[in-house]
Each structure stands twice: as C-alpha cells, then as structure tokens.
Nucleic acid binder design. Structure first.
Lengths: 332, 332
DNA sequence: CTGAAAGCGCTAACAG
DNA sequence: CTGTTAGCGCTTTCAG
C-alpha cells in the first residue's frame, strides 16, 4: 500500500490529526510542527488519498459535463469553457459522451452514470418533461439547451428569438425565398424551436412557408453539403437565402454552392448558427448567430456550484443567455 | 446520509455481503435472493457509493487526459477519441487543462494534480528529460507528443518525417522558395522537430535555407493571418510555397493571402499540419499532414490500461503513429 | 450459497 | 495547539 497519513504522523512524531491539519491548511499548527510534518511528507513521498477523503467528506470535487457528441465543435468549445469556470470554483470536470443516446441521458438523470461526481451539467437532446420523475433525488443537476424538466435548473440559448432575428435580417435585405436547412423528422427540441422562430419570422415578413424549402438534415457538414447538392441537382429552383440550423451545415452548404458555381451572397445569402471560429475565416465569411457561450458556461457552473454547496443565491433557476447576429460577407 | 448497502441488506433480510454480491454480479446468489435484494434496492433508491468502493479497491476507474489548451481543435478532437477508447476499456476521462503552464505539467508528473485518477495521458509541451526525477513513482503515465522522459511510455507524431514529406511534395512540384510558418523562439520540441524535417527536406532538394522565410508565430489563426499580412505589407518578396506548422496558421495565412489578392495555389502553394476537418472544406481546400489520431488515442489508452491493470503485453513503450499527406487544392 | 467482521485512509467531534 | 477515536460505505477473508 501507499504511504498514509498514519505513516507520516509516526515519522514526524505527531498525531494523525496534526498531519491532517497541515494537509488541509487547517487551524493553528505551530510552525515548527508544520515544518516537521512537511518534511516527513516530502521524505516519504506522501500523496493524500483522494478516495478516502471523498468518502469522508462525501464530496469528490468532480462534476460531470455530459454532451451528445464531442466532434461537434460547439460542444468542445463549451467543454473548454466549463472546465475553466469549474476550476475557478474549485471543481474538476469529467466528460461524459452520450452519443445522443436517450438511454444514456436517462442514466445520468437517474444517477447510474454519475459515479464519483458531485453533480452534472447536461446538454440533453431527448429528455421529455415526464422524464422528470426518473431523476435521482438530491443529485445536483443543470440542463443546457431547450428542455425544461420540472424543477431542474436550466440555462438556455434563445433559439426562437435568434431565428426570428435571422429571418428579419434576411427579409430586411430583400430576400424572399428562404430555405431552412436542418429541420428534420427526428428533430430535437432545439430544432423545433429554431423552426418556430423561422416560421414566426416568415409570417411577420408576409412570406409564405414553403414546405419544399424546409430541408431535413443531420447537423453535420457532410449532410449540409449533400442536402444542397441534391437540391441543386434535382433541378428545383434555388432559394435566395439559406438559414442553416448550425454552422457545420452552413459550411457544408457553402462548399456545395461553390462547387455548383452558385455565388454567395449574390445569388444566395447564407446564415449559420453557433458562430464557431471557422465562420469568421471561411470564404466568404459566414453570417452566424453567436450565442454567449461564456455566459452559458459560467451560469451553468455557478448554478451547479450553488446546488452542491447548498448556498442559494436568489439566482433564477431558468436563464436564457444573450446572442448577437454577426453579419458577415455571406449575407450582404 | 444516503441509503447504504447496510440499509438494503436489512430491508431484504440478508447480509451486506449478499447485497455486495448482487451489485457486483458476483458468485452464486440464489435467484430468489437476488430478486429480493434488487427489489429492496429499487424501493430504497439505492445508489452505490463510488468513493467507498474506490477506497476499498484502490481504483477509481478514472483517467486524466491532460492538454495544454482546449481551444485548439486538435486537442478537442483527440479528447473525443480518448474518451471513446477509454470507455471501451472501462475507464472514464477527466479533462485537465494546463494552459501550457510548465508548473502544471510538473504537478501532473509529481502526482499533485491527479487526485482520484488511476493514471494520466498527457500532452506535455515543456517537460525536459531531467524532469523525469520529479515523477511520482508508480503512477501510470503516458505521454503524447515529442518529449521522451526516461522510462515513460510515449506515443508520438512523426513530425520530422511528415515535414520532410511536405517539402518533398512542394519541391517536387517545382516550388523553390519555401516559407516555414510557426517556427518561433519559444518553440516547443514539436516545433523544433518539424523545423528539422523542413531543413532536411531543403537540403535534400538542394534548396537554400533562407532565414527570412522562417517566420515566427504562435500557432493560432489570428497569428497566421497577421504574419502573412506583415510579410506582404513589408514589401518583401513572396515565397512560392508556405508550410505552416499547423492548420490554424495555414487557414489564417490563407485568409491573409486571399485578402491581399494572392492566388492560392497558382502564386503560392499552402500546406498545413493536423488535417482538421476544416481543411477539407476551406476554399481552396487545404493540403495537410494527417497524423493518425485514432491510432494515437487508441495506443495511448491501451498503454495506460496495461500499466493500470498491470498486464504487460509486449507492446512497445514508445510508438510513432502513421501519417498521410492529404494533397488538396491549395498545393496543386 | 450466505453471515460476521476487519479494515481501506481520511476527517472531525471531543477532550485535553 | 495537539492527541484519541469513531466511523464514512464498501470489498473481501474467513467461516460456516
């Protein structure tokens, strides 16, 4: 076995209690004693056993960040921000990938997948309101995204408002035939809400909602490209603007348009969602909805922190972050 | 306190031992007994305490993945792969960010930053051979990248060979004035090795090594862009090819070239390193070195797994993964 | 197949 | 300021 506090105590000629005090920067320990203990620790190569400490404190210092998929740029970005915020509040982050699997999301909810964590931040895709009853009682949880489970803290992206803003921008610059890319039969709540905002925008601008211009597609670059290729090759008339439900789709679409010789933005304006770094650097640069991810991460971590430490702070249990529509070359 | 095994045992009218057996799918438990226990667990909402289990088993099931920075796309990609591989072998992954801070890297090495993990995979930037002595004895560790610490398992990217291949490709298609972008005074070992391969390639092709064409820059998109802008604006003659030390630099450079009206690849060929997804979708698409990241993640996790479980497997303690030079529009 | 019981290493209440 | 000591909840040896 590794060297324990007991060993250190014996070596330094003090009690275990004192060693613990030194390790935890506790109370008053005489400088001389502290020095002796530190010396003994150094000499024996003592490293505190975190499992024992966790057991005793019933706190591990770990939180889980649960995402559907790590390949999507936005989740990786968010993870980076969550790690940073968590560290600032003294937590470390365990990454859990659900592969958008409903079963796994439920496992997180019911506590089967949270071993060794004090709480979780989850980006859930498939949860429904009635799943609330499967929740493990007392386990701190914050949801990111659209789903509101009764009584669960939650921080959201303003999907509807942002989509509305996109349509206003497009219609406001004279576009009339708007395509929505990424709407799909297996759509998540997020997709539905963005669709909603899109439709509201059309109505507001007095434009018809054309089913043929609501194109289903997974939110990947490859599918965005493919969807547009198929649309063009089928000979259907082009829209004069495309609103893609995320930047991956938009950038895939951009590639397809370029290959088919369609000019962006002259013939077709293009707008994405998420504002990943790449949007600023594509050719043409991509207009995109930029949700405030930093705020999102900060709020989520802070909410979780409160639940874990049990310090309520009057903070709203439901929050929606800001967004900006970054207008770039692809839609001007 | 939460409900414990003891509570379940009492409720089911069996001993704690039997509950443990059921929880761990152990040994022979009479079906009838198992059923009763399962029922009691369900009823009481029992969730095993992972900290206690970890203490007892002296194993947490967690491994740390330590990266310099999470914003760089390649680290996020790698993290996703590591999480997947780890899960397949029954480990979960804790993400640790060092911000390229040498002190933090040393803390990982010495065990101060590995609380609750059974081992770590680290992408170290600043470690030097003599740091080996600071290593925490017996703590399973695998390094990714260039640094070889005496006696530490290690999986590498073939930086020298790949850089050589890039120069061969460029020189082979008639380019004569090659710029190296990303070489810098604070260069990591990785940068030095890529520089090495570059110089070897020049020598092999009988081309001069021109100091003025070795441009220092952090490996970010913004810096790549800025470096090329400055070069052009200073009136210095353009190279006919640029080898950027990673794709971020290359894509930033591409942006600068485009804005200054320089044609890629007609006037200047451009090659990057890492082959991030974006390279395939840029305009023009980017030629890049594609190291086999999947293999890298798989090897690293497997090596760590062996150390943790103590099952040696004749696998080499040092391994270099394959790479492919993906030749695309930017260099043809 | 199941029970009793001994710790894993640490924290913290209690006592000086 | 420091020593003693009782568990935290679980796994596992030893008996039956």
């Amino acid at each position: 076995m590794a060297v324990s506090m007991h060993d250190v105590a014996r070596a330094a000629g003090v009690s275990q209690r004192t060693v613990s005090n030194v390790v935890n920067d506790y109370a008053y320990v005489r400088p001389e004693t502290r020095r002796r203990v530190l010396e003994a620790m150094e000499e024996l190569g003592y490293v505190p056993n975190a499992a024992a400490r966790s057991l005793r404190r019933s706190r591990t210092g770990l939180i889980a960040f649960v995402v559907p998929d790590f390949r999507a740029r936005i989740f990786a970005d968010l993870a980076g921000l969550v790690v940073r915020e968590a560290e600032a509040l003294g937590h470390r982050v365990l990454i859990e990938v659900t592969d958008s699997d409903r079963e796994r999301e439920l496992q997180v909810l019911s506590g089967g997948r949270n071993q060794l964590t004090d709480g979780a931040i989850m980006m859930a895709l498939s949860l429904r309101p009635q799943d609330g009853r499967r929740r493990r009682a007392g386990y701190p949880l914050v949801l990111m995204g659209d789903h509101v489970l009764e009584g669960v803290h939650h921080v959201a992206i303003p999907n509807r408002e942002a989509s509305l803003a996109v349509v206003r921008h497009l219609a406001g610059s004279g576009r009339r035939r708007l395509m929505l890319l990424g709407h799909g039969p297996h759509g998540s709540e997020t997709a539905r809400t963005r669709l909603n905002g899109f439709l509201a925008g059309l109505a507001e601008a007095g434009l018809p909602a054309d089913e043929a211009l609501m194109v289903a597609a997974d939110w990947s670059r490859a599918r965005g490209r493919q969807a547009i290729e198929e649309h063009i090759d089928s000979g259907r008339p082009l829209p004069d603007a495309i609103f893609a439900m995320n930047d991956s789709l938009a950038l895939g679409a951009l590639r397809a348009l370029r290959e088919r010789g369609v000019l962006v933005p002259q013939e077709v304006a293009l707008v994405g969602f998420d504002d990943v770094e790449e949007a600023r650097y594509s050719t043409p640069s991509l207009t995109s909805v930029s949700p405030d991810l930093e705020a999102m991460a900060a709020h989520a971590v802070a909410m979780l922190h409160e639940q874990i430490t049990g310090k309520p702070s009057g903070r709203e249990p439901h929050l929606t972050v800001d967004f900006h529509l970054r207008i770039r070359e692809s839609s001007q």
